[in-house]
Amino acid sequence: MEDVIADGLRVLFCGINPGLMSALTGHHFARPGNRFWPALHASGFTPRRIAPAEQQQVLALGFGITNVAERATARADELSAAELVAGGRTLTAKVERYRPGWLAVLGVTAYRTAFGERLAQVGPQERTIGGTRIWVLPSPSGLNAHWTPAALAEEFARLREAAFAA
């Protein structure tokens, strides 16, 4: 699955891995039940709700999209710890290459495994990659039901405020 990425972004959003619908369409967060695109709009990152097929438009808004792991699965918990750790190394190299202001990892459990941060919580992290700060967001998957759409949008908005602060 191709990254939506460029140099000097304000935020690089990083999903765990492509779902089966995303792998089929080539669009990030393509499954209709995924709450990424609605949360992005509700939090103020986008002026309207962007469809997965319009994903390239986010570059002009100052952010991009990638994944920790490349292998498509029906559920993120089908990935092995080794795949997530290897993905963390690849992601670190991407961040060092493109130097976004923030890396936003969408899934606290995946972040903990990929970066060996067992106690990480949702929110800004102490760890940085070069000059890039890290923010862990909840997974927007419809399977992550204990985060309501409103709470998810609120956490995205906290990141937006930090990323676009003067």
Score class of each variant (00 low, 15 high):
T109F: 13
A81D: 15
A39V: 01
A157Q: 00
V122K: 02
V108I: 13
H41E: 09
V95D: 11
Q56N: 10
R49K: 15
V108T: 10
P124E: 15
L143D: 06
L143T: 04
L12I: 05
E54R: 03
V108H: 04
A151R: 15
F13W: 02
V4R: 14
A151S: 11
G26H: 09
S141P: 02
R112F: 13
A86F: 12
L159Y: 00
V4C: 13
L137S: 00
A82I: 10
A114D: 07
P138D: 03
A60C: 08
E126F: 11
A81E: 15
G62P: 07
H41Q: 12
N144W: 00
A104I: 01
E96R: 14
L137H: 00
P140W: 05
A23F: 08
E161L: 10
A93I: 08
S80E: 13
A151F: 01
G19D: 13
A60L: 14
G26N: 08
D7P: 05
R31V: 05
I129W: 04
R112T: 10
L84Q: 06
L119I: 03
P149M: 05
A165F: 01
A120G: 10
F29S: 13
Y98E: 12
A39L: 02
L159I: 00
V68S: 03
V122I: 14
S43E: 03
A114R: 02
Q121V: 13
L152K: 00
A30N: 08
W102I: 05
W37Q: 12
P138I: 00
R158F: 00
V122R: 04
F115I: 02
A76T: 06
P100L: 09
A81N: 09
T46E: 04
V105R: 03
R31Y: 09
R160N: 00
A51L: 12
Q55M: 08
E54S: 08
G26W: 07
A74M: 07
N144V: 01
A104D: 02
P149T: 02
G64Q: 08
R10K: 15
G142C: 05
P140L: 03
A51V: 09
S80G: 10
E70T: 12
A76I: 04
G130M: 07
L79W: 12
P32Q: 08
F164M: 03
R89M: 11
